[in-house]
Design a binder for these strands. Structure first.
Lengths: 211, 211
DNA sequence: AACACCCCCCCCTAATCTGGGGATACACCA
DNA sequence: TGGTGTATCCCCAGATTAGGGGGGGGTGTT
């Protein structure tokens, strides 16, 4: 038997949620609040195994509340339960330490199971969310090493200096070479990276090399 | 009713899997193979809604097979079903386009449900996998966001254009504003980001904003 | 000897950076 | 109501820098 508290402004949804878990022998829903104003205090008071958190709420929204709760008690497991499925919110929730991200369209028996998993340190994502996360993951990390430009050591030195914001004169001083030599290296770098400005070179350097 | 084929070298596990789905009215397990040698061909032949793929197999391993299948028919949904829960394999699977990643300890009825979700374009991860993925996501992407510079919408437009390698004249044309106005926005951007060149602005833009 | 890499010097145009000077519009607040 | 602030827009001009072209060297490897 695990304990949970819920923050959800939709009265109807809150009700049906409460009713469902009245008969549950797995989840004890200790309390349900219409806003997250005192979320941190309530978490401290009830010490729930799982917190169910809506995103769209008047006053403090669910993402802010999530951050506050995780800041105050990092070991609390929070599952987002919302209608939003846009990447930005999913992203924000995961980065802020959510343990789960479920859509309200999810069946309650699955949520019940999910809450059990989450209380044990597991994670849960509704199918469409999981698909989005995996896609994001792929996009973010696949293009890790697209085509490593074959720069010489010296050219890498110069490029690194450019990324650090140095201008040609400063690079010359830094590397103890002549001003025009820096220019020569830069010409080669541009040719190899297929760019023609320092900004673009810096972008390419960061997006596909040193990061 | 969705169709599936399975690649799994463990005879015992394959058997119990087959037996379970013989009685299923949701999943039709069309075939089960002990290795992935002809995975691509079998996928082409059976055109399954979902492919169940073990990782540890003699000959071609599941990750290689996944890559081959996704290369040959990108729309095929593949769910990894394995005992491995190390980040490297999860990472590799997701990056190679897996739609799901389940542990063999998962109950078969959950897998059945998961296969349905996956066949519809959703994703599935066993709780411990989901937790790991979210943690990876967090570590990889939280990193730098110390002070989000408070740029105005227009300034963000200009900065984005700079990242894209446009010079001032091009930005002016792009945003349909005057050349000198672009200069004004750039001045403000530099002031707010505490930099004084386009290269540095681009670096800051990438390292703490647009990714 | 050819090649790659690194170094140095010159030139010129175009672009950037930085400092000014304005104007309008809108929101906020006393 | 006027004042303050911010965001958007426009213009100017000097000093510096960048970008791209040329010309050379020297070294070390293949």
């Amino acid at each position: 038997m695990i304990s949970a508290i819920m923050f959800e402004d939709d009265r109807q949804f809150r009700r049906s949620f409460q009713e469902y878990f009245e008969d549950s022998d797995k989840v004890f829903l200790a309390a349900a609040f219409a806003d997250a104003e005192n979320a941190v205090a309530q978490v401290k008071r009830h010490k729930p195994d799982v917190v169910i958190m809506d995103i769209q709420m008047p006053g403090i929204n669910g993402l802010e509340a999530l951050r506050l709760i995780k800041a105050a008690s990092p070991d609390t497991h929070v599952m987002m339960l919302t209608t939003f499925d846009d990447e930005e919110k999913i992203f924000a929730a995961i980065c802020s330490g959510a343990s789960g991200y479920a859509l309200k369209s999810e069946h309650l028996d699955r949520l019940e199971k999910a809450m059990g998993d989450v209380s044990e340190g597991g994670g849960f994502m509704s199918p469409s969310i999981a698909a989005k996360v995996m896609r994001m993951f792929q996009n973010q990390l696949v293009r890790k090493q697209p085509e490593y430009a074959d720069l010489t050591d010296r050219q890498k030195d110069v490029l690194q200096a450019m990324v650090n914001g140095l201008n040609r004169k400063m690079i010359a001083t830094e590397l103890k070479i002549g001003y025009d030599t820096v220019g020569d290296h830069i010409k080669e770098i541009y040719r190899k990276l297929h760019v023609n400005s320092a900004s673009e070179a810096v972008r390419e350097a960061i997006l596909r090399k040193i990061v």
